[in-house]
Every structure is written in structure tokens, then in C-alpha cells.
Simulated assay, not measured.
Amino acid sequence: MVARTEELGVRRSSVIFKTALIAICNFTLEKISAKMESMERALGYREAKIAVCKLPSILDLSEAMLAHRVEFLRMEFGLECSCIAHRPAILMYSLEKRLIPRHYVIQILKAKGLVKRDIDLFGVFCSTHKKFVEKYLDR
């Protein structure tokens, strides 16, 4: 299991190694290979490795869900694969409950000129509900 974890690119000295090891222990070698292939198709080889190294629990997502979220983030929000890979936590959030509603709020605020054009979507998506409401709605 340790060797498999290192094969994914997570070093033993890394803070995230324990989390990666736990994620690896939940799957067979074939299942891990299938999940990595799916991630490579969705993000690209290099980006898939980066995403797993940064957030090993991403392996818990189903292959279909991962592909759907990556495609949606790329097409609807215009995010690059490298941006998604460097901030893989965005893939763990629900499209319907978090990402899409917040995206629409930001689009409306931009249209009305209430927020700057180059807003960091990752910050918008990852902030707590309370902080999001305080920053963008309670003005």
C-alpha cells in the first residue's frame, strides 16, 4: 500500500501521505488504475498526478462524477485543467448545491457592476456559506 501511494507521486515525508494511504487502502490496484485513467482523460496526465498529490481523497469520487464536474467547470466556468488540478478541492463540492448557485450570484453581481471582473472563483466556491453571504450578499 505504501509503494502504491508513492507511485501516485505522494512522498512519505508529505503531510498528506497518511490521507493518501487511507484513500489507497480503500481500493484494489485495478480500481486505482481505472480511477487514475479516468482522471487523466478528464484533466490530462500531469494534472491528474498533481490533483491526487494535493488531495488524495479525490480518488473517492466516481469516475462519471469526476468527468462530469471537470467538464462542467471547463465549459461553463472557463477554468483550465491546470487551475482545477492545482485546486482539486473544487471537485469535491456539489455542482447543484454550491458551485452553480454561487456562480450565478457572481454573474449577476458582475452584470450590475457590484464586483470586479477578475474575481477568484476558487475563493468564491471554497468559502463557507456565512463568509460568502457576508462578502457578496450582505453589502
Score class of each variant (00 low, 15 high):
residue 16 I to Q: 10
residue 125 F to R: 04
residue 104 Y to W: 12
residue 115 V to D: 08
residue 104 Y to N: 14
residue 27 F to Q: 01
residue 108 I to C: 12
residue 94 S to H: 05
residue 27 F to S: 00
residue 137 L to S: 04
residue 106 I to Q: 02
residue 53 C to I: 05
residue 27 F to P: 00
residue 27 F to E: 00
residue 48 A to W: 01
residue 118 D to Q: 09
residue 84 I to V: 15
residue 115 V to T: 09
residue 55 L to G: 01
residue 46 R to C: 03
residue 89 A to V: 00
residue 22 I to S: 11
residue 133 V to A: 07
residue 57 S to C: 05
residue 26 N to K: 15
residue 46 R to G: 09
residue 24 I to M: 13
residue 70 V to N: 00
residue 26 N to W: 08
residue 19 T to V: 06
residue 52 V to K: 04
residue 97 K to N: 13
residue 58 I to N: 02
residue 54 K to R: 14
residue 48 A to E: 03
residue 3 A to T: 14
residue 19 T to Q: 13
residue 91 L to E: 00
residue 130 K to T: 12
residue 10 V to G: 03
residue 16 I to Y: 05
residue 69 R to E: 02
residue 60 D to T: 11
residue 46 R to A: 06
residue 30 E to L: 11
residue 20 A to G: 09
residue 107 Q to T: 11
residue 119 I to M: 07
residue 25 C to V: 07
residue 65 M to S: 08
residue 83 C to Q: 14
residue 93 Y to C: 08
residue 62 S to L: 03
residue 54 K to Q: 13
residue 63 E to G: 03
residue 4 R to V: 11
residue 13 S to A: 11
residue 49 K to F: 01
residue 63 E to Y: 07
residue 116 K to D: 12
residue 86 H to A: 09
residue 83 C to L: 14
residue 80 E to Q: 15
residue 129 H to R: 15
residue 33 S to R: 14
residue 68 H to V: 02
residue 60 D to F: 08
residue 67 A to I: 08
residue 38 S to H: 04
residue 24 I to H: 07
residue 36 M to S: 07
residue 124 V to R: 03
residue 54 K to C: 10
residue 137 L to Y: 04
residue 110 K to D: 11
residue 19 T to F: 04
residue 111 A to D: 07
residue 85 A to R: 05
residue 23 A to Y: 11
residue 86 H to W: 07
residue 93 Y to G: 01
residue 95 L to P: 00
residue 67 A to S: 10
residue 60 D to H: 08
residue 132 F to E: 04
residue 126 C to M: 14
residue 81 C to I: 09
residue 82 S to C: 10
residue 11 R to C: 11
residue 119 I to V: 10
residue 83 C to K: 06
residue 17 F to W: 10
residue 77 F to M: 15
residue 47 E to G: 02
residue 122 F to T: 01
residue 33 S to G: 15
residue 114 L to K: 15
residue 26 N to F: 09
residue 17 F to P: 00
residue 89 A to W: 13
residue 47 E to D: 09
residue 39 M to I: 06
residue 88 P to W: 09
residue 48 A to R: 00
residue 133 V to F: 13
residue 8 L to N: 14
residue 132 F to K: 03
residue 65 M to W: 12
residue 48 A to M: 05
residue 38 S to R: 02
residue 126 C to S: 12
residue 103 H to K: 04
residue 97 K to T: 09
residue 9 G to C: 11
residue 15 V to H: 08
residue 48 A to S: 14
residue 108 I to M: 13
residue 80 E to Y: 07
residue 39 M to W: 02
residue 112 K to N: 05
residue 87 R to Q: 13
residue 78 G to V: 07
residue 71 E to R: 12
residue 50 I to Q: 03
residue 40 E to P: 01
residue 32 I to H: 03
residue 138 D to K: 15
residue 81 C to P: 01
residue 93 Y to S: 08
residue 70 V to T: 14
residue 101 P to S: 10
residue 125 F to I: 13
residue 136 Y to M: 12
residue 64 A to F: 15
residue 30 E to Y: 07
residue 111 A to Y: 06
residue 94 S to G: 04
residue 41 R to L: 14
residue 96 E to T: 13
residue 41 R to T: 02
residue 100 I to T: 03
residue 32 I to D: 05
residue 56 P to W: 03
residue 4 R to E: 08
residue 13 S to N: 10
residue 113 G to I: 07
residue 106 I to D: 00
